[in-house]
Design a binder for these strands. Structure first.
Length: 655
DNA sequence: TTCCGGTAGGATG
DNA sequence: AGCGTCATCCTACCGGAA
């Protein structure tokens, strides 16, 4: 494929041009890079791989999205446009009214942080191209390596091709945390409430220091950077602006080891914004950039303002607000506030396999890690999400929301196993677990005993009491108080909750549904599992919950009732099994379950094996229908979202 | 009907 | 040969409750 000299611009002779990676967009230290060469190498190294195929799928999906939006744009009549222009103008005025030029924000960004720290502890690396990371993924590259096009988020083996002398250093988070803490001590002297955005980035409100010390921001910023250097031996770059969104953009301008100031002056801001490429804005990534460019010919932030009517017509209100705000150069100026954690997760990548024993082992590890992490922060969670990445890089998530919070690795594993089991057989390259819906959510279901699900009815004893107990076991207070791990008030509850099926005194219940859930027992690749129906003979009706979803709320999951008619005849197929044939009955229920799962699997396969185009159409069709029905105004099908909060709200203040 | 909670997928840094 | 980890937010969609 040595066709680089070719002058033809047709994409067929230069296939790499259509492979859109993120490695070629402007980044500090990448100015002199031969972008075409980088793109070609990346393409050559990726071509034909599963990863590449998945990227192509994603790309096709994005193109489809763009086409859709184009069609929607074309559908807008002049009358529509003037209508939306009025709405947009109103919104522009409202947002403009919120402009606050009284604050001075500073964004500090450490230069090639991990790489710089590594060089500090091993000075022989100085001046040599180096990357922190592994052959499969690079976290940071130093500036020498960046000259070759090597950069963060690039797989190491590709970086090697771009820069054969590249030195790899493994990541060492302890070290980075140590140095990060040193920088934060410096930040604290200038703004005790500074917001740490990551180990190497922070936002500081400099308004007060400047006033108190009667000193210009430029001077304080120089001083701060000096102090960071003195404390750590590391350089950083800084941006100063009246809001965080702009400050972040500014810190990138004179990187490395530089600073840039944008005055608190509306005219200056508008000038600055006018030529600023949208991609420089935090929150606008590859996909959004593409959509804005290809559908609306928007390249700069100024263009955003010109096209505001389209946002009001075709995007959600929050997305429209975000775009318009960016066009006005607005961003977060408010004081930081503590935000509680929303979720906690861990995931592991491995070489793709179908080995279910291996999956189980991974789940055990992940459950234990997650449980330990939750314990460290005194959290209990109600929603468990299993994340899978198939051998073909397709990402799937499967979630389950429980009645009461859990934390123990045993509980996590139990539910995670159920979720995974429903996906088997499958070839995976990643498994992850996420816990969310923490007990600090004041309005969680725990405090709402009126909200009942199936499980309430089949709980042993008085489930009402149980729920009250749940509440009293200081579940609600966990958010702010540390729970002594040795005294775990929830563990018992959890046990109750999960043994729903066993020794369930149905006769005590006047519940209308005399039923038992066939709770699939713990995931067991060996198939040695024991069955929960054993030892009971009062089953009158068995819910085969194929979704294994405790709340049973998902519409796509069907439940089919297996009833032993006259207590001996299967309602689904008519086979006869007397009540005493417990094991046989269990096997029979399992048979129906497996049958159903297989059918679902097959239909899923049929869907997956459709040509991509058709799948898109199906997806579009579905979205299109509901759009007409439910959301006539906003949200184009597959509407883009923009995390508006990214710059208007605080990052957690984790010092 | 509308609102809300739950699930799934995606974008971003 | 081979493309990570973690957290957050957003949208779509569905179904049940108010």
């Amino acid at each position: 494929m040595e066709k680089s000299e070719e002058t033809s611009s047709s994409s067929s002779s230069r296939p790499w041009e259509s492979y859109h990676t993120v490695y070629t967009n402007a980044k500090a230290g990448m100015d002199g890079v031969d972008k075409e060469k980088v793109q070609r190498v990346v393409y050559e190294m990726s071509k034909g791989s599963k990863y590449f195929e998945n990227e192509e799928r994603k790309e096709a999906y994005m193109k489809q999205k763009i086409e859709n939006m184009r069609a929607q744009r074309a559908n807008l009549k002049p009358a529509d446009l003037s209508h939306y222009q009025r709405i947009a103008d109103k919104r522009i005025a409202e947002l403009e009214a919120t402009r606050d030029l009284t604050r001075t924000w500073l964004h500090v960004d450490m230069d090639a942080f991990y790489a710089a720290v590594e060089t500090l502890s091993n000075p022989s690396l100085k001046g040599r191209p180096m990357a922190v990371g592994t052959m499969s993924m690079i976290s940071t590259a130093n500036y020498e390596a960046r000259k070759f096009g090597v950069r963060a988020a690039m797989p190491g083996f590709i970086a090697c091709k771009l820069c054969p002398e590249l030195i790899f250093v493994p990541t060492d988070f302890k070290k980075y945390t140590y140095y990060s803490d040193l920088t934060r001590k410096v930040f604290q002297e200038y703004d005790p409430n500074f917001m740490a955005a990551s180990l190497d980035e922070a936002y500081l409100d400099m308004t007060n220091v400047c006033k108190e010390r009667d000193i210009t921001v430029a001077e304080v910023t120089e001083e701060l950077r000096q102090n960071v250097y003195k404390a750590t031996g590391l350089t950083c770059s800084a941006g100063v602006a009246p809001n965080r969104l702009l400050a972040k953009v500014c810190s990138d301008i004179n990187k490395p080891n530089g600073q840039f100031l944008l005055p608190n002056d509306r005219a200056a801001i508008m000038t600055f914004i006018s030529s600023l490429p949208i991609r420089k804005i935090g929150g606008i990534g590859k996909v959004t950039e593409h959509i804005l460019k290809d559908v609306f010919e928007i390249k700069t932030c100024e263009d955003l303002l010109q096209k505001s009517s389209f946002f009001c017509a075709l995007f959600s209100p929050s997305s429209a607000d975000f775009f318009i705000s960016v066009g006005l150069g607005l961003g977060g100026t408010d004081a930081p506030q503590v935000r509680s954690r929303k979720s906690m997760s861990n995931e592991r990548t491995f070489s793709a396999t179908k080995d279910e024993t291996f999956f189980h082992q991974k789940l055990v590890e992940l459950s234990e890690m997650l449980s330990a992490d939750m314990e460290k922060e005194g959290l209990h969670g109600r929603t468990l999400t299993l994340k899978l990445k198939t051998a073909s890089f397709e990402v799937k998530t499967r979630a389950l929301t429980l009645q009461s919070s859990i934390r123990s690795s045993k509980d996590i594993l139990k539910h995670a196993s159920k979720l995974l089991k429903a996906e088997l057989p499958v070839s995976l390259r990643l498994i992850g677990l996420r816990m969310s819906h923490f007990n600090e959510d004041k309005d969680g279901t725990l405090s709402d005993p009126t909200q009942r699900t199936l499980l309430n009815y089949i709980k042993p004893g008085d489930d009402n009491t149980n729920l009250v107990d749940d509440e009293h076991s200081d579940v609600k207070d966990h958010c702010y108080t540390y729970t002594n791990p040795s005294r775990d008030p929830l563990s018992e509850l959890n046990d109750n909750n999960e043994q729903v099926v066993e020794d369930n005194g149905l006769e005590d219940h006047e519940c209308k549904d005399q039923l038992n859930a066939v709770k699939s027992s713990e995931f067991d690749p060996q198939g040695t599992e024991t069955h929960s129906l054993e030892g009971r003979n009062q089953d009158q009706l068995t819910m085969i919950d194929f979704s294994e979803n405790e709340t049973g709320s998902s519409s796509s999951h069907h439940k089919e009732a297996l009833i032993w008619l006259e207590d001996y005849k299967c309602s689904l197929c008519g086979v006869e099994l007397p009540p005493s044939f417990l094991e046989e009955r269990q096997e029979h229920a399992d048979f129906h379950l497996a049958e159903k799962m297989q059918m679902e699997e097959e239909s899923a396969h049929a869907y997956r094996n459709l040509p991509l185009k058709n799948r898109m159409r199906q997806k579009e069709a579905v979205v299109g229908q509901s759009k007409g029905r439910k959301r006539p105004k906003h949200s184009p099908s597959n509407g883009k979202h923009i995390p508006i909060d990214a710059f208007f709200s605080k990052a957690s203040h984790n010092l």
